[in-house]
Nucleic acid binder design. Structure first.
Lengths: 221, 221, 221, 221
DNA sequence: GATGAATGAGCTTTCATTCAT
DNA sequence: CATGAATGAAAGCTCATTCAT
């Protein structure tokens, strides 16, 4: 895949101008593409397969999305915008941060929020992860974007809780990395590798996960 | 990719018949393929690229490996044989299990051992993970193999330590799943997503990781 | 060549679904393929040669016929349907059988009819014969079809004329075989080996041929 | 197939210089090639298949025969020399022509002789016919050779018997063509299309065949 | 806007042939 | 002599993309 633009962020905002409502055919195409990309991966899915699955002519795909690349981006970009940048914002909006007296409460809110989000967009999440891993280019282009949006928001949060004496005495970046490694790893394991319905008691699952991380990160006395 | 055989395990043992020493060119081909598959993924790498990278004619690849599929398997199968089946065996051989009085010690030995193994074959690990995620077929064929080899060995171990009162009072399968999710997730995050040299103090890293998991899994008093 | 189906007869009827009108390019492709297959044989003709001859892109061939195999079948199947099953039917339709008082008259009608048919499709006939000889698989798949359609129609005819005392006292199968051997042999010699225009007086030719066969087969007194 | 020489006849005599006895490996190669060419046709048989069947290395084939073409010729040329040029000679040698008072006796001797010859070299005969039909070039190069050798010998014979009043009053060329068409057609039908062992009583078969032809060709009173 | 025929670049694979050992 | 690794040209085929209708 050769991404059509060098400036990923600009592309995202340009893409936003798609204020026009998608036609019924467009909807069908997107649905078909999501299904097949998630199943077989972008590179293993041909546009003709998508067209057949969507019940449209192959030309129709290109009329709307110009290239296969942009079809992928049309799926991923809205998802990325809704997920990464707001990774904390979403939390912040739904929770009154001031009332979060503990890092544990913050973490629980964050994880619950993200799990729900991924569950609501499971297939697109799968596509994104697969392509990040498979496609060095996409990964590279996403990296600064993620760093800017996630790190910049979470790091201060960590600093604050460190000051409050809630977290282990490690550099904030290290804590960040540990947190990220485990959370991200958890999401991939759970949503890309394990069977779909393995977790039954979601609340208990989050409880364990938070406990897990907290015990690893909380200040040792 | 259409895997050339239905019986993955048989294929593995047949593949062992590599009694003939590989040519110099064969070595070059394998090296080039590993490099490119790890970088761009199997589906995004053409055999002509591999040939060019290896400095051989494209025909030479097919003289030795018959298909692109089998080239991939030639890389993955030896790795799988060395990694999955022995995931605990390796640990058992190097450590005197009887002396492992605690689950923590066992976990530390296991993780250290596997990290070293992956570090020694980082690129092949990347290829394997990428293809497992990207290629539903490979995943499906690997699943029973993994279940048989990993679960059957680790589960008894967990039972034992549960009986010794070291582990949280959850079903062994749940503990297993939690352990797997986090370890696997950790490996993927660390070796496929984060930059190569982010971990400097490996011993401390394992310490944190084990601590992390132990705190989450140990018996709560 | 690996024929795409096991059931030749089914394939034939499926193929009939050619309800869509062929494109102009499709027509060109078929014409070019017929010309080149007849000239050089299927195996010695490359799809790129056909494309060049037809004045289309190579991809166009595969868009319409999926494989080189099916291109060949697209040419042969309609011909087979029109030729073999009706080998006698065509005769029966055009001639009032009841009025055929003699085997000689029947034979003459049959031969005249088939010669005209082959002359009208000389190139396809050549392709078919060549492939039957060259391609064991095609021959095998065609065999039961031919037996069913030809033998079952001609044998009763022979029996009838034997009863009328017109034919030599040999088993009907033997007469059938002799007839077949000579007719088929004649067609191959004439249309595949001898120059195109060697026969000038067609009527005389048939006369000689029928005479030839009749003298060999008629009842000896 | 691109025949390696323009002058077929010269090639034949050059080839004769192979007075050296073939090695055991050469024998194996020739046998394997004959078997596979007869079965699948020249174009559908790869040199590596031949090598495997013969139990030699692929290089060995090329060491002895330089090209795949020449391997084919090594098989066909001796056969052609023994068959076509002597088509009558063989007859002449074995039979005392002067004693042949009738065309029928000549024909019977000729046919019996040729049937035995083909039966002794059935596979090579098949290869030759297949390639003559499949390969326009070979056919073209063989044509003058055949004309020169066959026509020049049989035509005078026909003239002679015509003068003796044994044959129908048609131009000798026409009689020749009819004879050729039927004989050649008969051989192809019998040895390439019908099953191997369909003829049980060979003597009766020849009897019928000769009768067949004679009745067609003999002088009508 | 929607279609699907047409394209051509590029893919995997085959194969006759060469040549160092 | 025999081998088989290596070659590269050409084969059949796929696929994203274009464009006339």
């Amino acid at each position: 895949m050769s991404l059509p633009t060098k400036n990923f962020l600009k592309e995202i905002s340009l893409q936003t101008d798609h204020s026009k409502k998608p036609t019924e055919k467009q909807q069908k195409i997107i649905e078909a593409a999501i299904k097949m990309f998630a199943e077989k991966g972008y590179a293993n899915t041909s546009t003709s397969e998508i067209a057949k699955e969507a019940g449209v002519a192959e030309g129709t795909i290109f009329r709307h999305y110009r290239t296969k690349d942009r079809l992928l981006l049309s799926i991923l970009l809205p998802f990325i915008k809704k997920s990464f940048p707001s990774i904390a914002e979403g939390v912040f909006k739904e929770i009154n941060l001031d009332q979060l007296t503990s890092f544990e409460a913050f973490l629980k809110a964050l994880i619950t929020n993200r799990i729900e989000f991924i569950k609501a967009h499971k297939e697109i999440f799968r596509i994104l992860i697969k392509e990040i891993l498979y496609n060095e280019k996409l990964k590279k282009e996403l990296e600064p974007f993620v760093i800017k949006n996630i790190l910049s928001r979470i790091l201060p949060m960590i600093e604050r809780f460190k000051e409050q004496g809630e977290l282990v005495d490690l550099p904030a970046e290290t804590i960040m990395r540990i947190l990220f490694t485990h959370l991200f790893g958890y999401f991939i394991s759970r949503f890309l590798i394990l069977p779909d319905d393995i977790v039954q008691d979601e609340e208990a699952e989050v409880e364990i996960l938070v406990n897990f991380i907290m015990e690893g990160l909380k200040k040792r006395s």
